[in-house]
Simulated scan of single mutants.
Amino acid sequence: MRLGINVGYWQRDPEDATETVLAAERLGYDHVYTAEAYGSDAFTTLTWYAARTSRIKLGTAVAQMSARTPAATAMHALTLDALSGGRVTLGIGASGPQVVEGWYGVPFARPLERTREYVRILRDVWRRAEPVTSAGPHYPLPLPSSAYAPGRVTGLGKPLKSIVHPVRPDIPVYLGAEGPKNIALAAEIADGWLPLFVDPAKIETVFGASLAGRRAGFDIAATVTTIVTDDLAAALEFAKLPLAFYIGGMGARDRNFHLDLIARLGYAEEAARVQELFLAGRRDEAIRAVPDELADSISLLGPIGRIRERLQVWRDSPVTTLLIAGVKDEPTLKAIRDLVQP
């Protein structure tokens, strides 16, 4: 099992994770991943860490598709990949309608179609076999005059090929996915899957059919909140915070993919209650309403001996990479490395 870290969103000083990233590199961790929502972006912080490291691989978990056209994302990835010596893994995701339409101001419809088209264009840009074209319908290249009202498109667009030769024409693409169809798409077209909240003991029963078509070498890189402490109760409370936020606040009342995921894991009634409390402004109650069993099952919590025992569930699962989230100090990163890769 490979081992990485996920430093998540950058929010403000002093949240510079450089020391953590450098420690992870010294300890032989495979990857550092960054994230974005509707504040900081994933690529700037990743470039910051790239400039300070030499070996650790650099991933986005995830860069939001609606934030950039496929060509723009391909340019970000190929530039950083070249500057870092071929270390980039591009994780992308469709996000949800609240963010896509409320923050980026573009339509959310048909996310599976959009993802397939997006990935195809990324790879065409990197391969440079010929000028990039796409019949659409979501990202047509060149842009046809019929795409907008008369007079808004010049009709002068022409197929272009990147003026930069990528270091690698096959930069790995991972998909952040939660629903069965989106996970099946990842297994079909991507190099890996980036699950956010996943119970390793339930991957086969809940998502086995979706993953059945994955190719050899397909990476399942799961982000795992990790808290090493003798106070298990405090660790559980901390692990519930992101669950309550995503179940309650990262999605519309009637369309929340995170809530749907938790329901698939067997906590439909509990998730509905968390959302109800969160949307009513009763956030402390929403956090307490997250079941202990749920928070524990998707995390690594407690004394180091307990984490050692819990790791067996992850080893027995289809997960191939653990992305440790929440650990900042080198001694704890070392202790976890020694457990995962003795």
Rank of each mutant, 00 (worst) to 15 (best):
A149D: 13
T47Q: 15
A24F: 07
A63R: 01
T115A: 14
D292G: 08
L279D: 12
A239F: 00
L194T: 05
P140H: 04
A42C: 11
T60D: 13
E285Y: 00
R253Y: 15
G155M: 12
G105R: 06
L3G: 10
W103M: 04
G176V: 05
G86C: 03
L294T: 03
A17N: 12
E293R: 03
G85D: 03
A184Q: 07
A24T: 04
K240R: 14
V327Y: 10
I220T: 12
V290A: 08
R12Y: 08
L211W: 00
D338Y: 04
V21C: 06
Y246N: 08
L339A: 11
L322P: 09
L300Q: 13
D170P: 09
V274Q: 00
A190I: 09
P303K: 07
D230W: 07
Q64A: 12
L259V: 04
E113Y: 01
T60S: 14
A289W: 13
L241Y: 00
P131S: 11
I189L: 09
A129D: 15
G155P: 13
A190Q: 07
P172Q: 11
G326N: 13
H31D: 12
A252G: 15
E130T: 10
I163Q: 10
M65G: 03
I163L: 11
A234N: 08
A77C: 06
E204Y: 11
A209R: 12
D191S: 14
G4N: 02
V167P: 08
N6D: 06
E237D: 00
A239D: 04
V173L: 10
G281F: 07
L112T: 02
T47V: 14
V198L: 15
E293Q: 02
R264G: 02
S145H: 08
G251I: 11
Y118M: 01
P144V: 12
K158T: 15
L300I: 02
D296C: 00
A186H: 08
P70D: 09
N256T: 03
R215Q: 14
I5Q: 08
I324N: 07
L3H: 07
E237M: 08
D30Y: 05
G4E: 09
G266K: 00
L236P: 07
L22R: 13
R306C: 04
A24N: 06
P291V: 03
R283C: 07
Y174Q: 02
T223K: 08
A129Y: 06
G151F: 06
L3Y: 01
A72Q: 15
T20N: 05
A268P: 14
F108K: 10
V119I: 03
V153K: 01
G266M: 09
F108E: 04
Y29I: 05
W10R: 01
V32T: 09
A51Y: 11
D30H: 11
M250V: 15
L333A: 11
R12P: 01
K161D: 01
A234R: 02
S162Q: 09
T53C: 04
R253M: 10
A17F: 13
V119H: 04
Q64W: 13
P342Y: 01
V7H: 03
V7N: 06
E276P: 01
D296V: 08
A221N: 02
T79V: 12
A209D: 15
V125E: 01
A187W: 05
I287S: 02
R127F: 04
R283D: 06
S66V: 11
I203E: 07
